[in-house]
């Protein structure tokens, strides 16, 4: 019973924090809300029996990736002028059209989900099981992911240089 209450609580927090994150004008504020949302999702992970994923969500998503955002925002030094402009961009006439599109998609997804039965948890899947599967049948996927990360590393190193040669 406690689990279910906790789940709805965490879901509510996640949704609210995400909506807030999407509507803030200040990037740092939005980022804090996003971190809250990610932490709430981590709680959901834990509740449905994926503690390892929950830990990763906190460590990598809420930790590493978000810190990267913080660094970049600090480097950019946006200031008050940026906030005002962001607020000006968030007019109803701008967001009403996309909102309708999103709603339609949501309805379709709801229609899809409505027919699904069953519980979301069939016991805890431990880190050990995950690790065995990861380095067994999914070893190629692991290799691909490592290649991807390497590419990301090289790409960000190249893009992060102070000047890029023009014209190439």
């Amino acid at each position: 019973m406690l689990e279910i209450i906790l789940f709805y609580l965490a879901s509510g927090v996640a949704l609210a924090a995400t909506i807030l994150a999407m509507t803030r004008a200040n990037a740092i504020h939005a980022l804090i809300y996003l971190i809250v949302s990610l932490l709430a999702v981590a709680v959901i992970f834990f509740l449905v029996g994926a503690p390892f994923a929950a830990a990763l969500e906190i460590v990598i998503y809420a930790g590493a990736i978000m810190v990267l955002f913080v660094f970049v925002i600090m480097m950019l030094n946006l200031g008050e002028k940026g906030d005002a402009r962001e607020r000006q961009w968030l007019q109803p006439r701008i967001w009403s059209g996309p909102a309708v599109l999103s709603l339609v998609l949501l309805c379709e997804l709801l229609y899809l989900i409505s027919s699904i039965e069953g519980s979301a948890s069939a016991g805890t899947v431990t880190a050990k099981t995950v690790g065995i599967a990861l380095f067994g049948p999914y070893v190629i996927a692991v290799e691909l992911a490592s290649m991807l990360l390497l590419a990301g590393l090289v790409g960000s190193f190249h893009l992060g240089r102070r000047t890029l040669e023009r014209g190439s």
């Binding site: 059209g97 996309p98 599109l101 999103s102 339609v104 998609l105 379709e108 229609y111 899809l112």
Partner: peptide
């Protein structure tokens, strides 16, 4: 960019809608 994204979303909605009508059981 935003027009591109909107058209992608529109395409997604459209494709899902067709899938409902053509093969409801497959989803």
């Amino acid at each position: 960019m935003r027009w591109y994204i909107a058209s992608m979303v529109f395409g997604l909605i459209f494709t899902l809608g067709i899938a409902f009508n053509v093969a409801p059981g497959a989803i």
